[in-house]
């Protein structure tokens, strides 16, 4: 469904050019939950931006349903890390979620229903007429997720969405994402620097090298569904996989900086 082919991204020109992404290729199938992990500063965000059409890659292509992306496509929803700046403070929760729906061909009732369903699915029904700044950080990120869901995307791109919330909220939000993913039947590409999170959430994990970025390894996650914060994380497979990725990232790093 989503296909990244030989993607490369270089910032700047001439001598001051920095190669952020060297050569990355992978595929995401319909209904899959794919996590992307890598050492910090490895161009994960750049990769996601290229995939959402926010950024033009310097080399290679991104295909969505076989068509090349050259701007944000309608089938893509995006959840930013900076929830407080991605939600518009002058709009209520309802208005924020309804904003992207205004240009979709929907009747007024349909639009209202989409918004209310999405708010319900992230558990914020009582807060629909609040302003984002009246909510806690975790709740704001729920609003951002609801906005993406109400947009009815085929694929949801998430850019380290839980990096700036506390640990307990983070676990709640992880489970929330797994739930709505099933409810909405949406494909998810989830970028994170947290290895536990990647293994816990993903059907597959793509491990990246540090910049200039390449795909180091793609792992199938064979953990039983539904996942559970305590039980899943106690499984030997989970521990094993997590250790494996951890070593992969750690081992690559000094080698990269030495060259």
């Amino acid at each position: 469904m989503l296909e990244v082919m030989g993607l490369g991204k270089t910032y700047g020109e001439g001598e001051r050019a920095t190669r952020a992404i060297a050569d990355v290729s992978f595929k995401v199938d319909e209904g899959e939950f794919v996590c992307v992990v890598g050492p910090s500063g490895c161009g994960k965000t750049t990769l996601l931006r290229c995939m959402s059409g926010l950024l033009q890659p310097s080399a290679g292509r991104v295909l969505l349903d076989g068509r090349q992306i050259d701007g944000p496509p309608e089938q893509v929803g995006f959840v930013f890390q900076e929830y407080s700046r991605s939600l518009l403070p002058w709009m209520s929760v309802r208005e924020n979620i309804a904003l992207p729906l205004r240009h979709k061909r929907l009747t007024k009732n349909e639009r209202a229903r989409h918004v209310e369903e999405a708010v319900g699915s992230v558990g914020l029904t009582g807060f629909i007429d609040h302003y984002p700044w009246e909510l806690s950080g975790g709740m704001q990120q729920r609003v951002a997720i609801a906005r993406a869901l109400a947009y009815q995307p085929e694929i949801l791109l998430m850019d380290e969405p839980f990096a700036s919330v506390d640990a307990q909220t983070r676990a709640d939000l992880e489970d929330l994402v797994l739930r709505v993913r099933t409810a909405y039947g949406v494909t998810v590409l989830f970028v994170t620097h947290d290895i536990d999170e990647a293994v816990y959430l993903g059907d597959r994990v793509i491990v990246l090298t540090s910049a200039p970025t390449q795909v180091h390894e793609i792992l199938e996650v064979d953990l039983p569904e539904p996942r559970d914060q305590v039980e899943t994380k106690e499984l030997p497979e989970f521990t094993h996989m997590r250790a494996h990725i951890f070593r992969a990232i750690k081992r690559r790093q000094p080698a990269e900086t030495a060259t």
Partner: peptide, 9 residues
């Protein structure tokens, strides 16, 4: 960028 992604133009 939010506006761009959600095609608010």
């Amino acid at each position: 960028e939010t506006a761009r992604v959600y095609r608010v133009r």
